[in-house]
Each structure stands twice: as structure tokens, then as C-alpha cells.
């Protein structure tokens, strides 16, 4: 299987006054197409920084990041925006839906920035919502939806542009255990359909849904192994 992400000696440091904080101290990692990877680690391990770098929201201070064959670690703001739009689908812990927009409008948003025409946009957004089982909730606003439904809208939004990777940041952090299982089933289905999924989490039972777990500690990879779920 082909490599979709290649990270070479990736480092990120922050300056706080005179002090330098090393959030990532050289991480090397390959993720293949259609892998389902959990990135784990305690707080302060650098997993948020990792998530921001993988999501092209931030750029590294050293190292290389190849995403779908393109070196993206030195791109300009607008070029990164294009990469985020085309290659990455975000799912956040707090859903991050626009509160005043309907489910459909929320899902259409990445297509708006991709310059897709209104009619095509609607068709594709409806298809994405149907894929996550929300074909009957198109005109509902986020506050009219349950937590699980909101996260499904967010997943539909992440998928609508057919990104290379689905990047989920603690996707079940704001959900109860029943709903969490539900969302994990959606992820499993997407993975089964060929979607590359990267999930950042600190919960090991959620990480267990992935087939591979990368554990970070102090800005370095501590372990990188297949999970029990993958072995089964």
C-alpha cells in the first residue's frame, strides 16, 4: 500500500520570552493509505502539536512533512489553506460547527472554499450527510441536534471534499460512552470503505478501535505498534 504521510525528523519549538519550549523533538513516521492510526500520549507529550502539524494548521521548525506526495512543511498560509481544504478532513472534540448554519450549510462549507458551484455543492453535501445517516436532518441547526448527531455532521463535513486523511482530535471527548461507540462505528465503516483515519486521543479504549497506535512522550515517539483490535 502507498504511503500517504511521510514525516522525517519533524520538530516544533516555541519561544516564550527567552525560553524555548520543544513540543516535538524529531518525529519520524510513515502512514500508509487506508491506515487507521491513533496518536496517543499524556498531556504535554506533543500530541496536540502533532495534530496541528498533521492538519497543516501549523508548520514545523525543522524536518519534512510529505502529504500525498507534496512537501507541505514550508508552504505559505494560503497554500496551506488549499491543502487543508483538499487533503484534510477535520473532526474536532467540540464539533466546531457554525451555530447559525444548518447541517447542510455546515457540510457545504469546505465546498464553498473549494469554489464548487451551489447546485453541485448541495448534492455532494446531501450525499455526505446520508453517508453518516443524517439524510433526514439537513435543515436542522446544531442546537437542534444531539451530540452524536452534531459529530456526525462534522464527520460529513470532513468527508465532503474526499480528503486524503480524516484527522480527528479527541472525537469522542464530549460524548457519552454509548454515543462514542456509535461514532467509533462510523469511523470503522469509513476505514472499511478505504478512508485513511488518524485519530488523536488520550483514551486507550478509544485508541483500541484503531489498528495502529503511536504513543508520544516528551515530543518523541515512545512506541508504535499494532493494537489488539488490529490483531483480532
Amino acid at each position: 500500500m502507498s504511503t500517504i504521510i511521510r514525516i522525517l525528523d519533524l520538530a516544533r519549538e516555541y519561544r516564550m520570552g527567552d525560553e524555548r519550549i520543544y513540543a516535538l523533538r524529531g518525529v519520524t513516521l510513515d502512514i500508509r493509505r487506508n491506515e487507521y492510526v491513533a496518536i496517543m500520549g499524556p498531556s504535554g507529550s506533543g500530541k496536540s502539536t502533532m495534530m496541528n502539524l498533521l492538519g497543516c494548521l501549523d508548520t514545523p521548525t525543522a524536518g519534512e512533512y510529505w502529504l500525498n506526495g507534496e512537501e507541505v512543511s514550508r508552504l505559505s498560509d494560503d497554500a496551506l489553506a488549499r491543502v487543508r481544504n483538499r487533503e484534510i478532513g477535520f473532526v474536532f472534540q467540540t464539533f466546531n460547527l457554525l451555530p447559525r448554519a444548518t447541517a447542510l450549510q455546515n457540510v457545504e462549507l469546505p465546498l464553498v472554499y473549494a469554489g464548487v458551484r451551489a447546485r453541485d455543492r448541495r448534492d455532494r453535501a446531501v450525499a455526505a450527510l446520508e453517508r453518516v445517516g443524517l439524510g433526514h436532518r439537513l435543515e436542522h441547526r446544531p442546537n437542534e441536534l444531539s451530540g452524536g448527531q452534531r459529530q456526525r455532521v462534522a464527520i460529513a463535513r470532513a468527508l465532503v471534499n474526499q480528503p486524503s486523511i480524516l484527522l480527528a482530535d479527541e472525537p469522542t471527548g464530549n460524548l457519552d460512552s454509548v454515543t462514542s461507540e456509535e461514532i467509533m462505528r462510523v469511523f470503522a465503516d469509513l476505514h472499511a470503505a478505504g478512508q485513511t483515519v488518524i485519530m488523536v486521543t488520550h483514551e486507550s479504549d478509544i485508541a483500541a478501535h484503531a489498528e495502529r497506535a503511536v504513543v508520544l512522550r516528551d515530543g518523541r515517539v515512545e512506541s508504535d505498534r499494532l493494537t489488539r483490535g488490529a490483531a483480532a
Binding site: 492538519g55 494548521l57 498560509d77 494560503d78 489553506a81 488549499r82 487543508r84 481544504n85 483538499r86 477535520f90 466546531n96 460547527l97 457554525l98 462549507l109 469546505p110 472554499y113 473549494a114 463535513r157 471534499n161
Partner: peptide, 13 residues
Amino acid sequence: IGIRKALGARRRD
């Protein structure tokens, strides 16, 4: 604004 940027909005958007 953060959400829009994450979803691919450029500065000029």
C-alpha cells in the same frame, strides 16, 4: 474564523 480557516478558507476569503 478558525473553523473556516481549518476548512480551507484563505486569507482573502
